[in-house]
Design a protein around this nucleic acid. Structure first.
Lengths: 212, 212
DNA sequence: CGATGAATTATACGAATGTATATTTGACCG
DNA sequence: CGGTCAAATATACATTCGTATAATTCATCG
């Protein structure tokens, strides 16, 4: 009787890569970077550990791919459903989308912390990070400028910058606190406070979200 | 000729513990948790690696002690120089102190990220964390309430809570961005935006900081 | 000044990690 | 239906980690 080997089915490399990336993000978020070993990743993906280096050139390569996938998903979350008839409505929905799951999520915060040190050190990851970060802030600044223009408000370049930084900060802070202490807020409380805070910072009434 | 052994001087255990804690925080902030090994800590402290388990019961014990020391230092940073003649001045200085080094610092952000996963898992660290976090928010809410009372403003309990959350969020967000991208802001810009934002959120003019 | 003992160094050990290599197996094709 | 080859498993290897233990050395005290 020969020693039994695991049965398996052949899959497209792309599909396996996606599985490994998903398993990496799960572990990174829930167990932390220290527990995210190649063996743990392979087991979480239901594969043998050789698959990491078969589909990726190294563990670091897999981590980088997982980071890119996560960032893309986050950006997509903020961009979702920003449509609206007026600029103020678009701004309001942008804020709401940025403060709603899956953007605000313990998992997202956990991943952000897990990746921070790697982002600091690895130039490729750092580039990905700054790119997405500035894209988000520019998007916010453009929405603010449009809302101002719509209501006839004038704002200098410097003032616009300050307001974008402030709005971005309150959104980031709520994102952070909502992810760190999800039970400390009632349902919808974070989004409500976020919209009200942006309105107060801009001195611009933001219409309540329209039902799509 | 006997094999030469390192020379050393005896120190108070308390002093050695402090050295090891400082080395741990340095490594954690600059190299990340993965590089913070007992050997690296001992080398950074200029000691041999046996000292970790001689002065602490385990590496985890040392990490916990380092975390407590860091949190105490951070809280002290926010509390510094909150004196002032009026409640509004005290609030303004509290905001400023919370957005000035060493509170706002890439190192502090790095440490926060490094400790996040440990805080999630370890009940003792989690208790330390929530204690300090809520102490900070309560302090902010009390300062807001005092500033309102001073100017004759009335605010319900729920409104006070929402405003404290919002102010806390903008401070946290600026803390995060200032630590993540220190070069993206001019000197004093973060504090200025922080004070202006809190003033806008509360609809309460905050006097510029008085010279002490 | 020699004995005492804790502080310190040095070394060793088992477990776990990332990587490398060898072997097997499933699916497609002529 | 047998051959082919990449996908997949299994195993081995060197390194590093936290921990444990043995061997020294500095400082204090009678």
């Amino acid at each position: 009787m020969p020693p039994q080997r695991r049965k398996f089915t052949r899959e497209e490399p792309e599909s396996r890569r996606a599985d490994l990336i998903a398993a990496t993000l799960d572990l990174m978020a829930e167990a932390g970077p220290a527990e995210t070993t190649v063996r743990a990743i392979a087991e979480a993906a239901g594969l043998s550990q050789g698959m990491i280096r078969h589909h990726f050139s190294s563990k670091e390569d897999l981590i980088n791919a997982a980071y890119r996938a996560h960032m893309a998903s986050q950006l997509e979350g903020s961009e979702r459903a920003v449509a609206g008839t007026t600029a103020r409505a678009r701004l309001a929905r942008f804020v709401t989308a940025s403060l709603t799951p899956p953007v605000v999520d313990p998992r997202a915060l956990s991943l952000w912390a897990a990746f921070l040190h790697m982002v600091r050190r690895d130039p490729a990851m750092r580039a990905t990070h700054e790119e997405n970060y500035l894209a988000y802030r520019d998007r916010l600044e453009a929405l603010i400028a449009a809302a101002f223009a719509e209501t006839g408000r004038k704002a200098g370049k410097a003032e616009l910058r300050r307001l974008a930084i402030a709005c971005n900060a309150v959104i980031d802070g709520l994102w952070l606190e909502g992810g760190a202490l999800p039970d400390a807020f009632g349902p919808g409380e974070i989004e409500t406070i976020g919209r009200a805070s942006v309105a107060a910072l801009l001195d611009l009434p933001l219409a309540d979200e329209e039902t799509p």
